[in-house]
């Protein structure tokens, strides 16, 4: 049978046997798996990571030795981190990591970055060894962009008729 992903993105096949039986992934990423794979929760023990890591205190863990499929937005790529290799990523872009990776957060620093950077106040930091999966388009980012086009504010079409024009197009009365 077939399972479809709920929004534009990639499906990542994960053979848990290759990752010592465990992968931690973002909430809601799970799509399907072979029977026997257990889907549980992973608590972030670090207070800062839980509060500011973008994924909250609770992530999903997949345990077992079968195939599991997770889904994430946009393009998804994997990156192998060497022991001690350090990567800073946007907190929303983290999809999954193997259990050997150390996941933490880091304050962006600098007054201009903090006030005007628009990138949030924290980076997620990942330290190797291990493998991480990164998405280019977190669904929340896509959703907020779509919402900005919805409702009254029509940016790309519409005429001077305004609300009356919307009514004529059948795009809603209000």
């Amino acid at each position: 049978m077939s399972f479809a992903s709920p929004y534009p993105g990639k499906i990542i096949p994960l053979d848990l046997m290759n990752y010592n039986g465990k992968i931690v992934c973002q909430k809601d990423a799970f799509l399907c798996a072979a029977k026997g794979v257990s889907i549980g929760i992973e608590f972030q023990r670090k207070l800062g990571t839980g509060l500011f890591g973008g994924e909250g205190f609770i992530m999903q863990k997949l345990e077992g030795d079968g195939m599991a499929f997770v889904h994430a937005g946009g393009h998804v790529f994997e990156r192998d981190l060497q022991p001690g290799e350090f990567l800073r990523i946007d907190t929303g872009c983290l999809v999954a990591y193997t259990q050997t990776v150390d996941y933490d957060i880091q304050f962006v620093g600098g007054i201009k970055n903090t006030l005007f950077g628009g990138e949030g106040l924290f980076f997620a930091t990942l330290r190797g060894p291990g493998k991480v999966w990164i998405q280019t388009l977190p669904i929340s980012r896509l959703a907020s962009r779509i919402i900005s086009y919805g409702g009254f504010r029509r940016k790309e079409e519409g005429s001077i008729l305004g609300g009356l024009g919307n009514m004529i197009d059948g795009d809603g009365w209000r």
Partner: peptide
């Protein structure tokens, strides 16, 4: 057997 998130079925 395969298991899936409810709602993913096609």
């Amino acid at each position: 057997t395969a298991i899936a998130e409810s709602g993913a079925f096609m």
